[in-house]
Design a protein around this nucleic acid. Structure first.
Lengths: 364, 364
DNA sequence: GGTACGTCTTACATCGATGTAACAAGTTGT
DNA sequence: ACAACTTGTTACATCGATGTAAGACGTACC
């Protein structure tokens, strides 16, 4: 009736509980006969190991948290996808949380949600400020994605946003576009994604000896499709007549294309559009979307690798499974935060090239 | 150095471990003074409850698994989003897994991934067949989404797919369209999504006294954008000249629009297109997409509610936290599987209506 | 004043799995 | 045949938190 325990398996197989445990964990010194008998008992009872018990004893849960602003933003969905897979390869299970860009939620995530369930956190912060990260007592191993928080004590994984924005802008300039609208852009010297990309954009303008018009930089409250559309509507209504759009993510680029369409402007004929992220939707939109493609698999791999290493470092100082009172292992020493830059490339498609491309054929 | 335990808090506060536990769990009979002292000790040490220990003792983990084919399919991402939120409201944490439509993975999910960590599973099956669900010994509480498996012992939540497909088809017929291509359709009498929707489509044709042309039903191997595009390419290449497309999800509809565009056909002028799922991409595509919109929030709510109930039923028969050897509670009796239909509605947009719609403005 | 009761706190056992150390058996060498 | 190993198995303590039952303390009432 109730779920069988190791004790039940042991009784049925006529061995001790520890022997069953040894079989389950592929301990070497178990005779083949015993092993077989235990396996049979396990099968007959439908026994499955209780992770609560195992985790308690082992001191490890094998669970990490992935914390993103919105899971239904395609960029984060695709990234979550890759991170779950990568974590699986490392024997870790991923708990996905979303914060809806709420600072309290992001702080809770850093704190392991008030418990020490997760062993580490991969966090894509939006609302946090640097002070939030300065002195975190709980100090759950943490890796940050995207936004950089300079004062932080956590590792950070991202593309070179300034260089990427600069390349995207140079691409538009090379096409002869001169009045470039930056959708989601924001002036300032903070380390936020919007600011860093805007600085890259300005660097490209400066390098080409072109003037910078602040009115063409349109901040948004969210990097979402409707906000991209609204920014374009507002810009056009304000009499600005852009011939190019640098949208700081693909969602906003798609919104921008939509808005341009509603104003009777052709893309790329009248206005060329570039996005960021290379989400799938941009590969099948009309027109297809030129975009800065981060190597998402590399981001996932780097983030998981960094977290695994941090967890190992943190665990090294703790008496994880040391019975008795032997001497403690070497004292843990916290390593300084690491910065990992991941490659990106500009993928040119119809929204800037104008050349018709054929849809990829699936299944041979 | 090492993470503080209840024992450490107790020592610091000068009380017993149980008293600390009582404070943490808001037990009533604790004096205000003691409560305050304990709270201070907790704060000073940065104590956080260890969930492994708590779960072991309580016999519950508060974790459910959500298992979907692909997290980066927008439909599942949006649904996951809602389910995570809904589960949170019920005090449950969600572990997200993806199966990539692999039968082994789906079976592993039903089995709780070989452990009894999760208390229940919400599964969107693609590769499972009915026999897989017939006699599951582990019998983790399970709720199925989408595909219906008639012989199953699990609850099921979905929209009325046949009725929805019928309504979508009737909409196309009402516009005067007569040669309707069914992208992703499939003849047969199974309970798979493709078959059920195709039957709904045929019912609409029959009700309108229109002939059924099997060549216009194009099966696909995956409900993904490129497959939708490929199906349209193939149909046009085969000389079929549809004036309407019923794509069985929005991803394929977007692929279909893309393919039609490449063939110089206008949407909806030459060909009207309807999709399923109402994903965000369809609200900002050019043209915007007419689609069958399932009430996703209702799906999430129904799925979580059903699972919560199943978990409660399953737990009722187990000696969850009964110390000693008192009499067991009443024997658990398994309830028959429940079928929950969730509302849907047809959202008419440009891809069939042709009337220009204005982009929604965000932020007031 | 003494008893009965209510409030607050504690000692202890327990959830399930596993590391440690000890102990049977069996093997090898001399 | 006996010591010195190796191999296979077991008893027991333990991870951290909490339910149970019982004890300590205080108050109220007769």
């Amino acid at each position: 009736m109730a779920r069988p325990r190791i004790k039940d398996v042991a009784q049925r197989a006529g061995v001790s509980e520890k022997t069953v445990s040894n079989v389950i964990n592929d301990y070497v010194h178990v005779s083949d006969r015993t092993r077989r008998v235990v396996r049979e008992a396990i099968d007959e009872l439908g026994y499955r190991v209780n992770l609560a018990g195992r985790h308690l004893r082992r001191g490890r849960t094998g669970i990490i948290a992935l914390v993103v602003p919105e899971l239904d933003l395609p960029y984060f969905a695709e990234l979550a996808n890759l991170i779950v897979a990568e974590a699986g390869r490392n024997g870790l299970t991923v708990l996905v949380h979303q914060t809806r860009a709420d600072r309290e939620q992001e702080l809770a995530a850093l704190d392991g949600f008030g418990s020490d369930f997760a062993e580490g956190v991969i966090l894509s912060p939006l609302a946090l400020v640097e002070d939030d990260l300065r002195d975190r007592r709980g100090s759950l191993p943490t890796v940050l994605l995207g936004e950089r928080l300079s004062a932080s004590s956590a590792d950070h994984v991202a593309i070179d946003n300034a260089a990427a924005a600069r390349e995207a802008t140079e691409h538009l300039l090379a096409l002869g576009r001169r009045r470039l609208l930056v959708v989601g852009g924001r002036d300032g010297d903070s380390t936020g994604t919007a600011e860093v990309r805007t600085r890259g954009h300005r660097a490209a303008l400066a390098a080409a000896d072109l003037p910078y018009d602040p009115r063409l930089v349109r901040p948004v409250t969210q990097f979402a499709t409707p906000h991209g559309a609204a920014a374009v509507h507002a810009a056009l209504a304000a009499g600005l007549a852009p011939d190019g759009v640098l949208a700081l993510n693909d969602q906003m680029a798609i919104g921008a294309i939509r808005a341009l369409h509603e104003h009777g402007l052709r893309v790329p004929g009248d206005v060329a559009v570039v996005g960021f992220d290379d989400v799938e939707a941009g590969r099948y939109s009309v027109p297809t979307l030129t975009t800065v493609a981060p190597d998402k698999a590399a981001i996932a791999a780097a983030a998981v690798a960094a977290l695994v290493q941090r967890i190992a470092e943190a665990g090294a100082g703790e008496p994880v499974a040391a019975d008795g009172d032997g001497p403690r292992p070497a004292v843990r020493r916290r390593q300084p935060p690491r910065e990992r830059l991941v490659p990106h490339r500009l993928v040119v498609r119809e929204s800037t090239a104008g050349a018709p491309a054929s849809t990829v054929r699936p299944d041979a």
